[in-house]
């Protein structure tokens, strides 16, 4: 284990995994609160086309992925905002269009499926120094906006109408969250891959909301779960790779899921206790209120 940490590629991978694990659940929390858990997944599919355009044109696939994912996320937001009945269907069309377009364009570019697969399932250990800087810089942007604008984003996600009456520019903030989600997807692309991106955004939140009683608590605990899953999953995969081929992406997601599996019964137990305490209190309150 200690030997592994001496390798430079491993140090780069650990940094990327740590920052991704911290940033992804922040945006994930807002998406889960707005019941858009699968939005990250949709953006991930769209980003596949972005990666393919990068492979075709020779530009950096990371940058083209950010661009295409951000455009796609904004389009999703517009469709969602208009709220017509076919919105759900339109999202599905975008998802599949993104994935199919990506595979098609990769073929046109004369690249093998293996090249695309790096992005679909992550390739943390081949990450370059430039990519690590890119990941860290974008993660810091996501963290700064996601945490700094928490009061505004919370108010909007909690109750849109109330936020409108309070004078918030709801559409602008929602657009910001969509773009941040796209950025997050691109960050996580190198770590867990586009097809598992949503997992790192959502699973830590699912785990932490079993235990937390407040939004702030959920957000911070989800970051802890995410960072643990990122670093832990990478170390597990590195340790196991002496015996078999274990890709870091799936290992990270499975560690995150293990966190949820542990948090669930713990949270249920805590809730049952709190409920027992509350019913006792409520009886007293009702006595006091009743004439």
């Amino acid at each position: 284990m200690i030997d592994l940490l001496g390798y430079e590629f491993m140090q780069r991978a650990l940094l990327a995994a740590l920052f991704t694990g911290l940033a992804a659940p922040v945006i994930g929390t807002y998406l889960v609160q707005r019941r858009l858990s699968l939005m990250g997944d949709g953006i991930g599919h769209i980003a596949v086309t972005g990666v393919a355009i990068g492979l075709l044109t020779g530009w950096s696939p990371t940058w083209t992925a950010v661009l295409v994912a951000a455009l796609g996320a904004m389009l999703l937001e517009v469709i969602r905002e208009r709220g017509n009945t076919s919105g759900d269907l339109a999202l599905a069309l975008l998802f599949y269009g993104g994935l199919a377009g990506g595979v098609l364009i990769t073929g046109l570019a004369g690249q093998s499926g293996a090249r695309l697969q790096q992005y679909l399932f992550g390739s943390l250990t081949t990450i370059s120094v430039a990519d690590v800087w890119f990941t860290m810089a974008l993660a810091v942007v996501v963290l700064a906006l996601g945490l700094g604008l928490r009061p505004q984003l919370f108010a909007i996600a909690q109750d849109r109408d109330f936020a409108v009456v309070a004078g918030l520019r709801v559409q602008a903030y929602n657009m910001l969250v969509a773009v941040l989600a796209a950025v997050t997807v691109t960050i996580a692309m190198r770590t867990v891959g586009l097809l598992l991106v949503s997992a790192l955004m959502v699973v830590p939140v699912a785990a932490s909301q079993q235990l937390a009683r407040s939004f702030r608590g959920t957000l911070l605990l989800a970051m802890a779960f995410g960072a643990t899953a990122g670093v832990g999953g990478l170390l597990v995969s590195a340790e196991l790779s002496f015996h078999a081929t274990v890709a870091p992406g799936p290992a990270i997601v499975l560690v995150a899921l293990a966190g949820f599996v542990l948090a669930w019964p713990t949270g249920a137990l805590l809730r049952r206790r709190a409920e027992a305490r509350r019913t006792g209190e409520d009886a007293l309150v009702d006595d006091a209120v009743a004439p």
């Binding site: 929390t29 889960v32 609160q33 707005r34 019941r35 858990s37 009061p151 919370f154 108010a155 996600a157 909690q158 109750d159 109330f162 309070a166 939140v205 909301q209 937390a212 009683r213 407040s214 939004f215 702030r216 608590g217 959920t218």
Partner: peptide
Amino acid sequence: GGVPASVAEVVASG
């Protein structure tokens, strides 16, 4: 919402 929020947090959003 999909995420728990405390009473104080909801009131503070006012």
